[in-house]
């Protein structure tokens, strides 16, 4: 037993420097983000309600695949009402706010995000009873020459507003089915290089997204520039005999990448997908 304890202690001593170096700074969360979005609220850190999955090393910081897996079923009595995602050290940390209903089937979510630097990415689930649970993960964005915008801006501009739905092959009545929604939009972070004044350009991004199935909400989201260009979401819905899956989004122009005080509305887009019985 003693030897066992010694071994554990030794192991702890050996790994403690690693633990220290892995514990990156959470000051922007504690001092700013939490105060702004969850003032006075208690948030429990836990992976029992939702768990965030993202690569530790993100080779393409403009396009980091992020998954949120829910650990509970969406039922009328107990369900995840909202998931909010932040990247602590992004110039604008708020990534998006995603609302679910019991009809969502499952509050799983996948998306692609921009991660500017070595940072925590966190997701906070709000239950229907108001309780808050947080899952977090460190993402190390590397690759300094791939700036956080799409590789081919003109190609993205040309097909702006197009949408595609992709469904997993086994859509069964009464069981949560996965849908993937692809939106073509450059989601421009804003270009503000002073000396190249010709190209001062406002932020231009998708800000509201609503997915319905037969007019009932499946996913309602408020999103921001941390969503990669050509936003891509996976989520669940409950297909009944057949019906129409519909996505609508609007975009917005803002004066600076880091403030949402001065913004003007853009356009609305919509797309429908018929699910046959």
């Amino acid at each position: 037993m003693n030897i066992y304890l010694q071994k554990i202690t030794l192991l702890l001593l050996l790994i403690s420097p690693l633990l220290v170096s892995a514990a990156i700074d959470e000051s922007s969360w504690k001092n700013a983000i939490k105060k702004q979005y969850y003032a006075g609220k208690t948030i429990q850190e836990s992976n029992d309600i939702i768990e965030i999955k993202a690569p530790y090393r993100a080779e393409a910081p403009a396009l980091v695949p992020l998954k949120i897996i829910s650990k509970i079923a969406q039922t009328k009595n107990r369900y995840i009402k909202k998931i909010v995602v932040f990247v602590d050290k992004n110039p604008f940390p708020f990534v998006g706010e995603f609302e679910f209903t019991p009809e969502s089937g499952k509050a799983d979510l996948a998306m692609r995000i921009r991660v500017n630097t070595y940072s925590y990415v966190r997701a906070i689930a709000e239950m229907n009873d108001g309780k808050l649970y947080m899952s977090k993960k460190i993402v190390k964005a590397s690759g300094g020459c791939s700036a956080p915008l799409g590789a081919d801006l003109d190609a993205a501009m040309k097909r702006l507003g197009q949408m595609k739905f992709k469904l997993g092959n086994a859509v069964k009545e009464g069981k949560p089915a996965m849908a993937q929604l692809l939106i073509s939009h450059p989601n421009i972070t804003g270009m503000q290089m002073d000396q190249v004044t010709r190209f001062i350009k406002k932020s231009h991004f998708v800000d509201q997204l609503k997915v319905t199935f037969d007019d009932k909400p499946v996913l309602t989201a408020k999103i921001d520039i941390a969503i990669s260009s050509d936003p891509n979401f996976r989520f669940y819905f409950m297909p009944k005999k057949g019906g129409v899956l519909k996505a609508e989004f609007t975009d917005v122009f803002c004066e600076t990448p880091t403030s949402r005080d001065v913004c003007t509305k853009g356009k609305s887009y919509s797309s429908s997908y018929m699910i046959k019985p």
Binding site: N116, A147, L149, M193, V196
Partner: peptide, 25 residues
């Protein structure tokens, strides 16, 4: 020029962080 303008601020930040270079606009 557009690419420089779109990436400039990000590049300058990365130059300090990854290349140990102090650059400005």
């Amino acid at each position: 020029a557009r690419a420089m303008s779109a990436r400039g601020n990000y590049y300058i930040a990365k130059a300090a962080e990854q290349l140990d270079l102090k650059l400005t606009a």
